[in-house]
Amino acid sequence: MNEHRHNPVAGEYRHRVPTAVKAISALAMVVILVTCTPSLRLYAGAAFALVVCALLSRLPIIPILKRLLLVEPFVLCVAVLSLLQPNGLHIFGLLVARTTLCVFTLVLLSSAASPAELIDLLRRLRVPSLMVTTLALMHRYLYVLQEESRRMRFARQSRTFTPGRRRIWRNLATVVAQLFIRAQSRSERIYAAMCARGWQ
């Protein structure tokens, strides 16, 4: 495992490891887990390395566990399907162990690396600039649009009665349509702002 081998130093250690190192070691971990012949020793080693990384990074434990649990239902759904075939229990165990380790790796990566750094890494990896611009803009306006949809919901709730089941669908569709229309006109304003600041 070429997980972070730097000396643990007190303080915000996770910020000093370059994002490229974090991303590449996470990728290496996932590749090893997916391609190597499954064995108890491999999974134990991987789990140990991940726990060490989690402790070294000094990230809060509870949010990481919560995010791990969020992904787990899908894993269990697929794993339960594997019980329906011969030797099912064996495959079930392997599947749950391997997938949980992979998800743990990704949760660590996404908690330890900042989104802006990850997007910058993609830019340096020669991902087409249209993709990178789209990613950067999406990340910038992700929370803006979520907030906007929340505001629209509150506005509706404060003006109308609690809707019945049929109205909920209709209302939701209106919210989504409005969200798209607003996103579209916002994109035009953003373009004007980008030009005003000397873009391209």
Binding site: L130, M138, L142, Q146, R165, I168, A183, I190, Y191
Partner: peptide, 23 residues
């Protein structure tokens, strides 16, 4: 070029739309 921001905004829109649950 004026539609380039729309790509990012549309991505954010799809993401926000995925957050809206219906019963």
């Amino acid at each position: 070029p004026r539609k380039i921001p729309l790509m990012g905004l549309a991505s954010a829109f799809v993401f926000a739309a995925m957050m809206l649950n219906f019963p």
